[in-house]
Design a protein around this nucleic acid. Structure first.
Length: 290
DNA sequence: CCATTAACCTGACAGC
DNA sequence: TGCTGTCAGGTTAATG
């Protein structure tokens, strides 16, 4: 479900009630998500202060004042809800609801955190493709989760020279290359489709056949589409919501994603087509994406 | 080594 | 109402 903009939206919503605050209570309702919770998960969090809440690729990372970092991945259907205890509060740009007593008791509410903000944070994940673990802060880049991750697409280092270089040897379609977390970390199905559309590049074109000019255009469109999506609070096609329950708005700005059969917004008189690549839907305009 | 596919799991929706 | 089949913002083990 969540790609970089959705995870970033969740991060910004959690920040005021997590960063600089302590976990007063932590509760897990089952032994695992996609993988088991690590040993002493609750114990290693309880009483700890989060010094920094940040993001790498589609992972949320909460650095603890104990040399460890809580890692959260939302998988396809994972969601975070924030309730402030007692009354409605306005912290930052979000208005958080007071926690009804049943908050955190839903069928798919698997983890409940309470912080001294005070706030109750509920992790809900029907499909359980999400993941939570705890790793040593100083050694994150040596772990299996982070070792192979590619560049952050919103970083300065992500430029046309980088993209051209990583695409040059690949005979896989550009759609698959851009979706590969080892190449660029954080893009997923929606934003790859949208960036390719904006760059007028066919998703079927082989990565090594992407011209230098197209690679430069892709860098620009990838950054732009991610920034636009973050500004819109992400895309709410089914599961994604902000931590206060509000929906993201970017799906209304999508040119091609989930728009099979509709006219191409470039007014080229083409029609948006859906194909399957690497087992996932790709949406594009066959007329203006070459 | 590289690239594609199947599997993980539940819910929503379309069609009969 | 209820069945069946399909699909979903991701990752990864197995397979070719």
């Amino acid at each position: 479900m969540p790609e970089l903009p959705e995870v970033e939206t969740v991060r910004m919503g959690l920040q005021p009630v997590i960063e600089g605050h302590r976990f007063t209570h932590v509760l897990t309702r089952r032994g695992d998500l996609r993988v088991p919770f690590p040993k002493n998960f609750v114990k290693r969090l309880t009483g700890r202060e989060v010094t920094r809440l940040w993001r790498r690729a589609k992972y949320l990372l909460a650095d603890l004042n104990a040399g460890e970092t809580l890692i959260i991945h939302l998988g396809m259907s994972g969601r975070m809800s924030v309730f402030t205890e007692g009354r409605e509060r306005n912290l930052g740009r979000y208005v958080y609801e007071a926690a009804p007593s049943e908050a955190g008791h839903g069928k798919h509410d698997h983890v409940v955190f309470e912080t001294d903000a005070p706030a109750r944070i509920v992790f809900t994940d029907p499909r359980r493709f999400g993941l939570m673990t705890i790793l040593k802060t100083g050694a994150l880049n040596d772990t299996a989760l982070f070792k192979g991750l590619g560049i952050e697409p919103l970083s300065e280092e992500f430029d046309s020279a980088y993209l051209a270089k990583v695409l040059s040897g690949k005979k896989t379609p550009i759609k698959a290359a851009l979706s590969d977390q080892r190449v660029i970390a954080g893009l997923g199905n929606i934003y790859v489709c949208e960036a390719l559309f904006r760059a007028r590049t066919s998703p079927k074109r082989l990565a090594k056949q992407v011209s230098l000019k197209s690679a430069a255009a892709l860098v620009t469109t990838i950054k732009a589409v991610l920034r636009d999506a973050i500004k819109a609070g992400g895309s709410s096609l089914r599961d994604h919501k902000r931590v206060d329950g509000a929906l993201g708005e970017f799906q209304h700005h999508c040119a091609v994603y989930d728009r099979e059969g509709r006219p191409c917004p470039n007014n080229c008189r083409g029609v948006v087509k859906r194909i399957v690549q690497s087992g996932r839907s790709t949406f594009y305009c066959p007329k203006c994406q070459k």
